[in-house]
Design a protein around this nucleic acid. Structure first.
Lengths: 342, 342
DNA sequence: CTGAAAGCGCTAACAA
DNA sequence: TTGTTAGCGCTTTCAG
């Protein structure tokens, strides 16, 4: 037969629909004894609430707010585009998506934005976190106001966010080393790391993973000093070009932050046979082109479409008082070569 | 405000709810002129039907049948497990999932199974196709009976299946070559291909992609004759072991079918320094272990969880007369190293 | 503390 | 050809 409804439960427990509804949503005003009777009836019938019907009746609207860094970072703009593309579909599933942007790396601005979010307007927030105390506090306040919070792409450990939607960055770094180490086996030398800033948690973790694996598995390769490119393509280009010119022993480059255009330019001016192997992060139209042109060897990626979908599902579930299935909603570290591009 | 409902449309068009419902579901019995009036009202209001409400009213149940090969193939068993894990969740979204298995590579058995599916019992079918005319015919009949059909993992080109949920196997082969070519740059030699059977379309495509890239990008490496292992671990082991023993020039192995346990055993008996680089397909607990032990270098994978989810979404959409967003529901060729394992 | 009744947006008899 | 009415499973007043 079909699934039991509150009618079945009501009949079995000998109460009215409203009473079943009360215990179902544990509202107050039910005598302990009847509450038990109803719960037992639910148990026995294996009752499960029909969420669609409940949402229809309630005219439930999930109001979600995404807070992203502004600026030219191609990955973040891609995330935003993807989010906007999801809006129409989400509306059909009664969820309203709004996007707010704040200056990147600016903890105060981010905290202020979060503080401005009203529980009367918003049910859940997904935020690309900047790792700072002010932000942690702001997240706690959101939660205190009953708003669900997940972090996206960049986590905020030991905060009260309920879930993190993003990749394991240590793993990403390890993967980069594993690739670069194998790619460079035929010519020992130095590996150059280009980072945005060692103040950002993701970058530190990626570097850590990279160095772990390179040292353990490819001891013949050494690591040259880290180049800080501040995620700016021009600075990246200039500093990497200088490093490559000064040290012809560099056979591999791992860029773990943004500024792929700078990497590409610095490498492609070299004669083909003296170019290092290159692994970078995030598949964008720029890194894609560089991959196709053979300037980059591999791109480590996180699937932004999936991240958005997971964040939406997670926030909806949390807003309903549910939980997130970590394993099913995991975001994996993806590897792209020229040959498996989407 | 909130979204317009049929009430709004009815009022604007000056008709009753039933009439709106009639044009909405283009049922007959509506005068052309009123049908136009109603459609215009919908246009003007930007009306979109609330699927959840419609399904509630209709007590809609999506009945989906998955048809998979039986046997010990670890990937297929993984698919089945994953499917069974989805059942409970699917039930909550009013979709009933049933699984049927048929002997692998047996087109007649598969066709018979499909022929036995009753439109009164099933709304959509996902099938791991065996490429044969009998199957194509069976698929056409299913469609003729009004049942939605998608192929899963293995496609059935130029059939009437409405969508294919699986990876691009040529791309998978190219990716394998790209990896193996780069991994073996330090020691030229031969690449051994281990296939299940060249009668299976996926395997042919993977081989094609592999050879394309190897020849174009790594002309120093040559390809030794294809070893047919019939997807059986013991046969695979024996034949690969013999090939490796007879030809010490083999520096790379690409296994594009099943039988990973056989590959692993044949390789791991060799001294570490004389082992070839190995790339195989499908992440299972066996290939995973081999990856961790350093016996395999990379695994090309298709995400079965995602495949199941996409197949379910696709079939539901098709059963409602909708369509599948190919780009959004694409299954990518994934690359796993020891370091980015889930 | 508990129940009756109306309604969410849509569909499905049954009349007219 | 069109409209009325009674639900789908759940929530929400408002009485009692």
């Amino acid at each position: 037969m079909s699934r039991p409804t509150i009618h079945d439960v009501a009949r079995m427990a000998g109460v009215s629909l409203s009473t079943v509804d009360r215990v179902l949503n544990d509202r107050e005003g039910v005598r302990k004894s009847t509450q038990i009777r109803v719960s037992e009836a639910m148990q026995r019938l294996g009752y499960e609430r029909n969420l669609a019907a409940a949402n229809l009746s309630r005219r439930r609207l999930y109001r979600l707010r995404f807070v992203l860094p502004s600026g030219s970072n191609a990955f973040m703009r891609g995330l935003e585009t993807c989010l906007r593309e999801r809006m129409a579909g989400a509306a059909r599933e009664s969820t309203l998506i709004e996007v707010a942007t704040v200056p990147p790396f600016d903890a105060q601005a981010l905290a202020a934005e979060l503080r401005g979010i009203d529980a009367g307007q918003v049910d859940g927030v997904a935020v690309v976190a900047t790792d700072a105390t002010a932000v942690r506090v702001a997240v706690r306040d959101l939660r205190a106001r009953g708003i669900a919070v997940v972090t996206l792409v960049s986590d905020l450990p030991s905060s009260e966010r309920q879930h993190f939607v993003g990749i394991d960055n240590v793993q990403a770094g390890r993967t980069a080393a594993s690739l670069l180490g194998r790619f460079c086996r035929w010519r020992r030398g130095k590996m150059a790391i280009v980072a945005g800033s060692m103040l950002v948690r993701d970058h530190v973790e990626r570097r850590l993973g990279f160095e772990q694996v390179l040292r353990a598995e490819f001891p013949d390769q050494s690591i040259s000093a880290v180049i800080e490119g501040l995620d700016d393509q021009d600075i990246v280009e200039e500093r990497l070009a200088r490093a490559l010119a000064e040290d012809p022993g560099i056979v591999g480059v791992y860029s773990l932050g943004a500024g792929n255009r700078g990497i590409s330019r610095a490498v492609s001016v070299l004669a083909e046979e003296s170019r290092p192997s290159v692994v970078v992060h995030e598949l964008t139209r720029f890194s894609r082109d560089a991959l196709i042109d053979g300037v980059f060897d591999a791109v480590i990626h996180q699937d932004e479409t999936r991240e958005i979908d997971v964040a939406i599902r997670a926030l909806r579930a949390l807003a309903d008082g549910g939980f997130v299935d970590g394993a099913a909603e995991r975001i994996g570290v993806e590897v792209f070569l020229r040959d498996n591009l989407p």
